[in-house]
């Protein structure tokens, strides 16, 4: 077996000179109960897709698993209805 990684004990060793403290991201839909996930609300959904039209991962946006599932479904419904672009290549330019 070609395992080149040096043996490590179970301590977290931060990279040299880099100690990044991240604020824990909070799910936007858990924080604000009035905020509904709706496929018709394309403006809200746009903040959860990239410029190319891909769905942003929950890891990036901080959305919880439950709401990420709803969000994914809503974005796909919006794509079907031509409310959101599927790819940037076919998107109409403003």
């Amino acid at each position: 077996m070609n395992n080149t990684r040096p043996p490590q004990d179970n301590k977290f060793v931060p990279r040299k000179g880099k100690r990044v403290f991240m604020h824990r991201k909070v799910c936007r839909f858990c924080a604000d109960k009035n905020l509904q996930i709706d496929f018709k609300d394309s403006r809200m959904l746009r903040s959860f897709i990239t410029e190319r039209g891909k769905i942003l991962s929950a890891r990036i946006t901080g959305t919880c698993a439950k709401h990420q599932r709803c969000l994914t479904a809503a974005i796909k419904q919006a794509r079907n209805m031509a409310l959101l672009p599927v790819t940037a290549g076919h998107a109409l330019l403003d």
């Binding site: 018709k40 209805m81 031509a82 409310l83 672009p85 599927v86 076919h90 998107a91 109409l92 403003d94």
Partner: peptide, 17 residues
């Protein structure tokens, strides 16, 4: 409304809910 992509050569359309 402006559509996100062309649908049957239409670039704009009317949605009804």
């Amino acid at each position: 409304q402006r559509l996100a992509y062309k649908v049957k050569k239409n670039t704009q359309g009317y949605y009804t809910v």
